[in-house]
């Protein structure tokens, strides 16, 4: 996946000023940077929740810059949000049914009864270690459980790239470890991951490549080890 020269301004605020990055297949790429550096804006620009001013985005050689949001998602981009986004009147089962099935046909769903078995849904939940009955409404879940469900949904949805916006923000240390293990295993299985993280330490031993964003620009990228010593990066973080 290639992201070239993306620009976005909100009124007078230049959120993205020529952001470019390349995400390698099968690797974990981390996107770090101080608050307001444009990480989430870049995610939203990729998934077309906001329209970018200019720039090009390619997924496996195909230009997806001008596609609408749901088509980009269909092309294979799964994502989560910093603020967990769930359907508040639906159950765990409903969420994963929607995520796994790519069928939107009215007539087909009218004639055929549900195709996705509870067994398949349970498998996904087991992968993220979420142990809750499938009929639980999401409003009855704790913050951590919601975070896990959100991750499970992104994993379950057919995808080639998994984009996670702060997967461990606000969770307790125990759950943090669980999520980290899940991510490591996903990567071993050959998944391509792009992770936004505010906390440098979390990604240092997880990511293969790190991009550092500051004021809407990539100020450094490379292996975590080299990034850690980069002066520009340290300035950006300490000058916060």
């Amino acid at each position: 996946m290639l992201i070239k020269n993306v620009f976005k301004r909100f009124g007078g605020v230049k959120a993205l000023q020529g952001c470019s990055l390349e995400i390698e297949k099968g690797k974990i790429t981390a996107l770090i940077g101080p608050n307001g550096s444009g990480k989430s804006t870049l995610f939203n620009a990729i998934s077309a929740l906001i329209t970018k001013d200019r720039g090009k985005i390619e997924l496996e050689g195909e230009d997806i810059s001008r596609m609408v949001g749901y088509k980009i998602a269909k092309k294979g981009i799964s994502r989560t949000f910093q603020e967990v986004r769930l359907f508040k009147h639906l159950t765990i089962r409903d969420h994963l049914q929607i995520a796994i099935s790519d069928d939107e046909s009215l007539i087909k769903s009218f004639l055929v009864f549900d195709g996705i078995s509870d067994k398949r849904i349970q498998e996904v939940l087991d992968r993220v270690h979420l142990d809750k009955p499938l009929g639980t409404f999401v409003t009855d879940l704790s913050y951590g459980q919601r975070k896990l469900l959100d991750l499970a949904i992104a994993i379950a949805k057919p995808h080639t790239l998994l984009m996670l916006d702060e997967p461990v923000a606000g969770v307790n240390p125990r759950l943090r470890k669980v999520i980290k293990e899940v991510l490591v295993r996903l990567s071993k299985e050959g998944e391509t991951l792009l992770i936004i993280e505010h906390d440098m330490n979390f990604v240092m031993d997880l990511a293969d490549v790190v991009y550092v964003l500051d004021e809407g620009r990539v100020i450094a990228h490379g292996k975590p080890k080299t990034i850690q010593k980069n002066k520009k990066v340290l300035d950006a973080y300490l000058g916060e």
Binding site: S47, L49, V68, G69, Y70, K71, A73, K74, R79, R85, L86, F87, K88, H89, L90, D94, I98, A99, D102, I153, K157, P158
Partner: peptide, 14 residues
């Protein structure tokens, strides 16, 4: 029902 609860959420799921 998902569309009622969160339209963007539905779009993100393709």
């Amino acid at each position: 029902e998902a569309t009622r609860d969160d339209e963007t959420g539905v779009e993100v799921l393709g």
